[in-house]
């Protein structure tokens, strides 16, 4: 379902989902051509979780994210060209090339630190929440992590700290392995986590936890809005698990795009290779959202096609900017690691 929001807001959510999708798809050929070398993780398939969830926040709230951070930063309004420059290790990158894909941050948007250690941010998020409570500034922290993060001991330690101290933090677990196609391919989810369903873990620490469909933008928006309200009222931490179905392009070690996204796929997936067709037909949150907008008469197919064209132009310009951006000077490696 669509979030209960005015039309302009709905279209903006849609635009940001397009930005994420086309940004992420643009990375694959850049990597394959050797324009950047490091490993990278794409947010494709999770757009309807991050975009509506992040739209529920105040501009001064804190967010923590992991190695799969591109979508979160873009959902919050980070400039695609500077994020892309960071991923390419360039001087114009968000972190001046010192962080890369895993560690992109944007402190002005509330992203202070992105960790490539899957549960690294969970204790940190209790810290910003502790500071907000001490400073009485009403700022909330959202901690965005994947299901694998719960396997590290940092997660339960942080849940205990957050619950005991009623800290203003939302733990938003994005489980992109709805059918167990995550880390343990072709195995059940419980193959790597004895606490299953995953919400059992926060519940053991008396943190209210719920499981939702992360493909349903309306449900994500309603659930996150309600959780955020409770946290702002001083009720302590909340946990949401949003389930999505893993994008077939990330089934291999290095991402590959099974079919370039185009909003027309929302109504016709016959051109998609058979192996990936079902995902694009029923599990692609962006295409679900596009269909819902048209069905609810909030946009026409032409509106969406025109919006997508503009986004593609913006991403093409971002690629041009990032590729043209210079590398940092080698001596910079020896500088600026102390404040």
């Amino acid at each position: 379902m669509l979030p209960k929001l005015p039309r302009d807001n709905l279209l903006e959510l849609c635009r940001r989902m397009f930005v994420i999708r086309h940004f992420e798809e643009s990375l694959v050929p850049l990597h394959d051509k050797g324009v950047f070398g490091g490993h990278y993780h794409l947010y494709i398939g999770q757009e309807a979780t991050g975009v509506p969830a992040i739209s529920c926040l105040r501009s001064d709230d804190y967010l923590f994210t992991t190695h799969r951070n591109h979508g979160h930063l873009l959902a919050r309004g980070a400039e695609p060209k500077r994020l892309l420059a960071e991923i390419l290790g360039r001087a114009d990158g968000l972190n001046k090339g010192k962080g890369g894909s895993f560690h992109s941050v944007a402190p002005t948007l509330g992203f202070l630190h992105s960790s490539g250690v899957v549960a690294g941010i969970i204790p940190l998020s209790t810290g910003t929440a502790y500071a907000s409570k001490a400073l009485k500034n009403g700022r909330l922290t959202v901690c965005l992590f994947g299901d694998g993060s719960l396997e590290e001991g940092a997660a339960p330690e942080a849940f205990n700290l957050a619950s005991l101290n009623k800290l203003p933090v939302l733990f938003l677990c994005e489980n992109n392995g709805k059918y167990g196609a995550g880390r343990a391919v072709a195995a059940g989810q419980s193959s790597s986590m004895a606490a299953y369903p995953l919400t059992d873990l926060p519940k053991a620490y008396k943190i209210p936890a719920q499981l939702i469909d992360g493909i349903d933008a309306g449900l994500v928006h309603a659930t996150v809005s309600e959780a955020v309200e409770k946290i702002r009222r001083g009720e302590g931490p909340q946990f949401i698990e949003a389930q999505t179905v893993r994008w077939p392009g990330s089934e291999t070690n290095w991402p590959s795009v099974p079919h370039p996204t185009d909003s027309s796929l929302a109504w016709d997936v016959s051109g998609v290779q058979e192996k990936a067709r079902e995902w694009y037909r029923s599990c692609d949150p962006l295409l679900v959202f596009a269909r819902e907008l048209v069905e609810a008469n909030q946009a026409t197919k032409d509106d969406l096609a025109s919006m997508e064209r503009q986004v593609k132009t913006e991403i093409a310009a971002a690629v041009e900017f990032a590729v043209a951006s210079p590398y940092p000077k080698p001596e910079e490696a020896e500088r600026n690691f102390f404040a």
């Binding site: 630190h113 204790p123 940190l124 998020s125 910003t128 929440a129 500071a131 001490a134 205990n160 101290n165």
Partner: peptide
């Protein structure tokens, strides 16, 4: 009021302190 006595969770509370430092404490 500016002291915290956490559980025996060195990993957790060192992370909490690090995050709190990032946010101005």
């Amino acid at each position: 009021d500016r002291m915290m006595s956490p559980p025996i969770s060195e990993l957790g509370f060192c992370g909490l302190a690090t995050g709190a430092a990032m946010a101005g404490l």
